[in-house]
């Protein structure tokens, strides 16, 4: 399958000598994006589909392949157990050299997630000299989602976005769980918010 994907690369190296390319419109929408990004995302998608990780799933949300929706299951043995979270991923045009922008769509009470769903996670920030991020091109959608899933169970309380949650996590797990459940909405309850 992977070979076939390569063969179908949307980057058109040559146009047919007689004009009127039959797939002109088809390629037009893709041409907006960098061909390499599309290619990379297609193969990531293929990997995600063929070897899925339990509790994690993601798929392009529109015909623009650089915007994805993802679904996470809360890890068991954490306050988030049995909860389902929706996220969005937006890939920059220089992906995978820059990290995707990941947001929680489901309201979540978590030390490293703010009220609008932004996530404070080192691998989601660009790396490089003078930068504190830890993004790397070897990471992919699957590993990013896996990291976020594990972040749910192991928050980084050293640099919280939600200070109250960080305090509560250490002091009162029961109260913490109550807050989590109070804030949480299941995807079916969120209909119409999108």
């Amino acid at each position: 399958m992977a070979n076939r994907l390569d063969a179908m690369s949307p980057a058109m190296t040559s146009t047919p000598s007689i004009n009127q390319s039959s797939k002109a419109q088809d390629s037009a929408s893709r041409a907006m994006n960098n061909g390499n990004v599309v290619k990379r995302l297609q193969s990531e998608l293929m990997t995600l589909m063929t070897s899925p990780t339990p509790g994690i799933s993601a798929f392009p949300s529109t015909t623009d392949i650089t915007k994805w929706n993802a679904t996470l299951a809360g890890p068991v043995d954490t306050p988030y157990a049995n909860l389902t979270f929706k996220l969005t991923l937006a890939y920059p045009s220089n992906y995978p050299y820059a990290p995707p922008e990941v947001l929680f769509k489901t309201p979540i009470y978590h030390p490293n997630v703010d009220m609008s769903g932004r996530i404070c996670l080192d691998i989601l920030k660009p790396a490089g000299p003078g930068k504190e991020g830890a993004w790397s091109a070897v990471l992919n959608t699957g590993s990013v989602l896996l990291s976020i899933q594990s972040l749910l169970g192991e928050p980084n309380n050293a640099s919280p976005l939600n200070g109250e949650a960080a305090l509560l996590w250490d002091r009162d797990q029961d109260e913490y769980k109550k807050k989590v459940l109070a804030r949480h909405l299941e995807p079916s309850e969120m209909e119409g918010d999108e």
């Binding site: 949307p10 297609q42 998608l45 293929m46 589909m49 993601a58 798929f59 392009p60 392949i65 929706k86």
Partner: peptide, 30 residues
């Protein structure tokens, strides 16, 4: 692919611009 698409993208129709068919064609050239 279809299952994941529906799980993440919500309910969809088969046809249409953003329907299952065209999405599938877009993400899966084969």
């Amino acid at each position: 692919f279809i299952a994941n698409m529906l799980r993440n993208g919500g309910a969809k129709e088969i046809g249409g611009m953003m329907g299952i068919t065209s999405m599938l064609k877009m993400v899966l050239p084969t």
